[in-house]
Structures are given as C-alpha cells and as structure tokens.
C-alpha cells in the first residue's frame, strides 16, 4: 500500500514529462512554419527616412553604424551639390563655413566639365543625414542613409529603430541587406 502512491506518482510524472515534450515539439513545429532559414538584419528604408538626425545619436555604437551611402547611378553630378554646400554660404568654394558636413567627410572630384563626383569618406561619416537632407532638397536623392553591415552588431531590438520618428528602420533578409534607391526604381 505504501508503494502504491509512489508508482502512481511516477507514472503521472512520466505522463507530464511526455506532455512537456509534446508541447515543446508542438512549439517547434509551429515555429518551423513561422520561420525562415534566412537571417534578418536591420535596414533603413530611404523612402521613409526624414533625416531627423537620430541615426547619429541613437545607435549603441559611437560613431553610429549608419553612414551616408552614395548611389552614383542616381547622382546628377551637380557642380553646386546641395549635399555638399550649405544653402547660406559665402561662395561656392570648399571653405568649411560653406559646407554642410560637420565632419568634412564628403570628397569632391572633378570628372568632366561641368560634372563633379561626390564620395563619402565613411571613416569620417557619423550618419547625421545633413547631406542627405540637402541632396533631397534640390538633387536626385542619391545620398541615402544606410545601416552599414560591416559595423552593425545586430541588436535584437535596434535602438535607432526604436527612436526613429517615421518607422523607417525594419528587418530585411540578410541576403539582401541594403535598401538603396537605384536608377529607375527604388532598390
């Protein structure tokens, strides 16, 4: 009689254990249906970005993993580049007070009359988006903010995405990790 409840308990325990295993495999099956072999990474949608400046300050990295990326195929190669020059300036030369970029990360190179190539020096770029805003004012919006995946550490919750006022940051498949605007279409 003394052993009776114990064996019943053992049987019960085995049953509960089996239920637990079944529940786990159930979750496993449901998850398999909901999941994807591809890994996801964070990226900025340039069409939603309003260049609020949060990218420079909200990232857990200093400087931010967000950099300005130049989509050359979209660029108008303007001599008077509004990504480069400020609206109010003393002239059209490259003196610091005439330039938008706070870290002097934009290089200009003469290509042919009257075109100039703009290159972003990523080591200096802090992702503030001031040049992106300028380019968007009058240019082709070829300058775009993107999360650079050689720098991004892949936080489970992107702290910039949390602060982004236009919800422009979303998860994208790691196989196509950039949302750059290209010529003749968005990406």
């Amino acid at each position: 009689m003394a052993d009776e409840p114990k064996s019943r308990r053992a049987v019960l325990a085995d049953g509960v254990r089996l239920l637990g295993l079944a529940a786990t495999s159930g979750v496993l099956g449901a998850l398999a249906a909901k999941s994807d072999a591809r890994n996801m990474v964070w990226q900025i949608d340039p069409d939603l970005c309003t260049q609020c400046g949060k990218c420079a300050t909200s990232c857990v990295l200093t400087p931010s993993a967000v950099k300005c990326v130049h989509s050359y195929a979209l660029c108008g190669y303007c001599q008077l580049c509004f990504g480069l020059f400020r609206d109010k300036r003393a002239g059209n030369d490259l003196r610091a007070e005439n330039l938008r970029c706070p870290t002097d990360a934009i290089r200009r190179r003469f290509v042919e009359d009257p075109y100039y190539e703009i290159t972003i020096e990523e080591a200096l770029c802090i992702g503030c988006g001031i040049c992106v805003k300028g380019c968007g004012l009058f240019g082709n919006r070829s300058l775009q903010l993107q999360i650079r995946h050689d720098r991004c550490i892949g936080c489970n919750e992107c702290s910039i995405a949390r602060d982004c006022p236009s919800n422009a940051i979303r998860r994208v498949p790691a196989s196509r990790p950039y949302l750059l605007r290209q010529r003749g279409g968005t990406r």
């Binding site: 890994n39 050359y72 290509v111 240019g139 050689d150 790691a174 950039y178 010529r183």
Partner: peptide, 27 residues
C-alpha cells in the same frame, strides 16, 4: 514638385562607381 537633375551622359569615359555593400557579419 521638387526639381531633379538629369543624370549626365559622360563623354570622358568615366565609369560609374557603385556603392560598396559590405555583407552582414552578424548573419
């Protein structure tokens, strides 16, 4: 609506660079 600049036709044989796209190390 915002005035856009037409992308130029280069005559000097300038090759359009393409932006680098480093792969996600996390993935």
């Amino acid at each position: 609506e915002q005035k856009r600049q037409p992308p130029p036709d280069f005559t000097s044989g300038y090759q359009l660079p393409s932006p680098t796209t480093p792969v996600p190390k996390e993935a």
